[in-house]
Amino acid sequence: MDETAARPLRADAERSMRAILEGAERVLSVDPGASMEQIAAAAGVARTTIHRRFASRQALIETLALDAARQLARAVDDGRPDTAPAQVALHRITVNVLEVKGAWAFALGLPAEPGSEAAALHEDLGRRCITVLERARADKLIDEAADLEWVRRVYYALLGESLHGGADDADVDTDTLAARIVDTLLHGAGPRA
């Protein structure tokens, strides 16, 4: 990441940085090979503004991935994974994650560089997911013999499938999708007693 991006930014610089990252997400999600010029146009800023902030296209992409990982971490935090009742936390986190992943699909689809802050955030999110699942198991929402790493992977798959679902899900709000995910995770597709 460029050194200037590590320092706190003035409000106008922060707005321009946000516009650049949002423009980059929009353009790169359609054309991963898009140029800095195309990103600048989508962000509504001069090409020189991008070049002042980022030494290279790769630096921009790394910043984009880190920013998206930070947003995902905040989304999980907002779900109060350590204090809300487990099922409430799971639902709220699911809503938040669907919103962030829906808005930042390109950035969150990038592999995090090993040892990077983004990689550390993703690893921490995996651990925090297991913690919520442990709390759900303690509340008897998940079978005590369940392999929680497998449950986490199934949960992630349900999130991914919900985000990449067909046209039938296009108009379904994130709260409804989250309810479907949590219900499927906790109850499967079998008949209810």
Rank of each mutant, 00 (worst) to 15 (best):
W104T: 06
T94A: 04
A13G: 10
G102F: 01
R135A: 09
A73G: 11
E149H: 13
L110E: 03
V172R: 02
R153A: 15
T184N: 08
I39T: 00
V27S: 07
C129Y: 01
G190R: 05
Q38F: 11
E62A: 05
Q58A: 12
K140S: 15
T63L: 05
I142G: 06
D147K: 03
A34T: 11
D169H: 09
E149V: 15
A145P: 03
T48E: 11
A68D: 05
R74N: 08
A120S: 14
R57I: 14
K101T: 15
G165L: 04
T49N: 04
L21T: 05
G109Q: 06
I61H: 02
R70L: 09
D171Q: 10
R128D: 10
L28R: 01
A40L: 03
R92V: 13
R153Q: 13
D124Y: 14
R92D: 01
D168C: 10
E144Q: 07
A138K: 07
R80P: 04
R26T: 13
G190K: 11
A193Q: 12
A34P: 00
A19L: 09
S29Q: 10
V132L: 04
E62Q: 08
A157S: 14
I39M: 01
E144Y: 10
V172F: 05
R7A: 15
T131W: 02
Y156S: 03
G109W: 09
V30H: 11
D78F: 12
L72A: 06
H122D: 08
E134R: 09
L158M: 06
H187Y: 14
L148A: 09
L133M: 01
G33N: 12
Q71E: 13
P191G: 08
D173E: 04
A189P: 02
L177Y: 05
A167F: 14
R57F: 08
H164D: 09
V97D: 00
G44K: 07
L60T: 04
I93A: 00
V100P: 00
L158C: 06
D67H: 04
A5K: 01
A146T: 11
P114Y: 05
A59V: 09
L148S: 06
L158Y: 06
M1E: 07
A103Y: 02
R15G: 09
S29W: 04
A189E: 13
R18C: 07
P81M: 08
L72H: 02
V97Q: 01
